[in-house]
Structures are given as structure tokens and as C-alpha cells.
Design a protein around this nucleic acid. Sequence first.
RNA 1: GUGGGUGUAGCUCAGCUGGUAGAGCGUCGCGUUGUGGUCGCGAAUGUCGCGGGUUCAAGUCCCGUCACUCACCCCA
Length: 448
Amino acid sequence: MATKVTPISGFQEWLPADRIAEQIVLDTIREVFELHGFASINTRAMETVERLAGQGEDADKEIYGIRRLADPSGAAELGLHFDLTVPFARYVLENAGKLTFPFRRYQIQPAWRGERPQRGRYREFLQADIDIIDVGSLPDHYEAELLLVVADVFARLPIGDYRIHVNDRKICEGFYRGLGIEDVIGTLRVVDKLDKIGADGVRKLLLEAGCTDEQATQCLALAEISTADTGFVDQVRALGVTHELLDEGLAKLAAIIEVANEHAPGVVVADLRIARGLDYYTGTVYETMLEREPGYGSICSGGRYDALATDGKRTFPGVGISIGVSRLLGKLITEEGLTASRETPVAVLVAVNDEESRRDSMRVATALRSRGIPTLVAPKAAKFGKQIQFADRRGIPFVWFTGAGADEKGDQVKDLRSGDQVSADSGSWAPPEADLRPSLVLPESDAT
RNA sequence: GUGGGUGUAGCUCAGCUGGUAGAGCGUCGCGUUGUGGUCGCGAAUGUCGCGGGUUCAAGUCCCGUCACUCACCCCA
């Protein structure tokens, strides 16, 4: 049955070398998350549709429902989670009695959204999420802390220049209310399109939504404000709008910017146009763009949610941020050629002189592995040229020749890149640290 | 869900106004029993997305369908 295999769009599947690159990135993320004191959890892929639904105007349409094929009855009761925050909130409620608060966890798992795939947008994608959640109230300083964790991760990955844009919804809400605008969410949504449709487009939509000319002008003026320091506060004040929430938001955002600039200079910018689609955010929101192509979309987003997790009696406010691993790697690996230094973990290929001496080669491999060196024995006692080629094609840096062969010279190991071949003892030889595991390699950048 | 584009070898594509399928790259083999990367020679692989129609004849025209892709929506 030779049915043609065709790809399904919106899914990322890597070839071995690229998968190794992905694993290196994931290992780095995990390592840094743990350095900052986050513990790992996993949640099941499915939640009840009831819990997933209702988080944003159109978000419901994107939920994948799950049902048994054998079950002819209509509606799905379970759905695949579309992010990691909603399942986490449920997990906290379910385990509130066993968790110690404030609880900080990381979670690296796929999420699913049933939308039309596009560049940088997948139906199945990996997120690396950190959240801090507490009972009753949550101190503001965590909102700056999360930025520093992300900055630490990105400092260890070859992602190039980026900026984390931060806003506080209270600024927008207070400002809008101060102006007499009632539909805060709707206004946020329109203003969020500023990049795409421009100031004139936004103005038009605002006027259609019932804003006065003056209100539209003020909304646009607010959205245009973006500063790398706390200068945004004075710029907002200069617009002359006053509201309690506005004051609160400005103070909070200013504090975040100050802390971020001290510990991770040049990373964070206060950007009053950032809104974000999910409705559960109540204060600070984050969005992260690559400087070389902001239009690619956010590669790391999150925010504060004060009321997502509640059991009716207690509320668990939280703040979280999520690295969009699939989107980030779609750019770095698929588009820009980032990959791994080899397509296999193997550091050493042990050549086989003839099938009779395969055991000698296996002993060498065992000795190397016992000291943590990923090692493979050649599949065939082919001519040495073939065995070297076997290693070279896979990017394996070293080939080991056992001395049991014809010339009795003793064991030797050859570095395929330099061609150097030296005597070696399988009980003590080790490759340079840099060659022990595959590493990330950027494509040769043409000298510009 | 709405609208546009595309669909030929593993990959990138060529194939003019219809006349029996091509290139480059890659893959594999060989280059006189062992040390690769260069080079030379050679080989394999296509229901030309699928179905129908027009025609003596369709990769090439028409209709449908599916897939991929881009934009909108929304978002990591």
C-alpha cells in the first residue's frame, strides 16, 4: 500500500541535526529556569472544554476538541490546551493543598491551536513557561524578576538583538476611563493593530467604535509612547489625563523598568501599545520581538493574571512568561540556518579492522562510554576510507583505530577535521570538552 | 472561517503558442585489500497532487477536488 506521504502543515518536525539544535536550546532554557529556582511540572495535554473556553473573544475557535472516533455523539468534552497558563491555573487549584506558596514552576510542553498555519505560527508548538503564583496576593517584584530570567536565557542563546516590550493594562484602562471611554478591551484591541494598519487606520476604527476625535487622538498619543527608561511617565502625564488606575499602572511599570535596566541593561522597553489578546491578563503584559524583524511576532510573551485561578473562596494571583520555542526556532533554524555541529551525539567512531576483531573495537567503545564519551562501533569492517567517510558524513569528529590490526601499532585516534592521528589509550583519552557533545553552529555569515 | 498564489525526481526548479519527461544539487556505486573530505566516471528515483472533460494527442487548455502556501482573523 504505497500511499503518498504528505506533510501536514503547522507542525514542526526536525531532521536529526536540527533536532539536536532544538535540544540544546531546550537544555539551556531548562538549566537557566532551574538556576532561578523554578521547579518542573507537566500537565496533561487535555483539559475540559469548559475550563479552556472563554479566555478571549476568538480564542475559543482555536481550541481542538477531542472525542473518540467510535463515539457518534456530537460535542467534545475535552480539548487540547492552547497554552500552558490555563492548565497551570487548574493544576494549582487541584493541588492547592499540597503546594507550597509562593509556588514557582517551569513547564516545557507543546500546546495546540486550531488556526490556519502561517510563518511563525503552528498548530502544534512548544512553549517554555515560567510562572510564580501565590495565595491571596502577589508581590509586584516578581514581574521584574521574570524579565531577568528570560534575559538570562537569551544571553546564552544565539538569538541576536531583541527587546522585551512591557506595558501595564492598568495604564491603558485608567487612561481610557479618564477619557470617558467605556469599552476598554475593545479599544485595546484596536490600538494593538497600530503596527499593522497605522495611525490612520486605528483612528478610523476608533471613530467607528464611537470615540470622539479627541479621544482617538489621545489613545493614539498614548500608544505612540515607548521609552527605554522611565521617561514614559512624564510623557503620559503631559497628555493631561488623570485616573487612579493610570497612576497605579505608571508607578508599577516604572518600577519594573528601573529594576530591569539595572540587571539587564538594554533589554527592556516600556511600550504603551502592547495589549495582548488573552483576556485573563490584568496588569503587566510582556511581548518580545527580535530587533532584526519585529514583524515576525512575539517570541516570548506573558503577563500578570490576578483572577485566573480561583476556587470561589481563595484566589491565586500569578505572573508568567512563556518562550515560544517553536516560533523562535522557526526563525533561527528554518530561516536562518542555525543547526548543530553534527547530526548524531556520537563523538568517536571505533573502526573495525575485520569482523574477527569486532570484539576489540567493542571493548574500546565500552571503555570510552564508561567515561561518558558517546561512542559508536563501525557497522562494517569496510576499508578504512569507507569507515572514515561514514564518520565524516555524520559529523563525527573522531575515528578510533585499534592496534590489533595488521600493523600492531597500538591504538590511535584521528581527528577528522585536522587529519591529525595520535596514539591513544582507551582508558584515559578524552576528546576536547567542546567536542564531547554537539554544539550550536550558526551558518557562515557572508562578510558584509 | 474568508480571500489570493502554487502543486513536475529526496531538494531547487526548467519544460515557449498542446506532440512519447529534463538540469543542477543531493544520494548511492566504482576509481586495482584498508586512512575520508578535491576530482573523474557511472547508477537509481517521477501514476508531472488527484478526478473528470476538450482533443488524433494534455505536464501544457477547462471544471472540480485535495494539499501546501500567503493575507485577514487571532496569536507563542
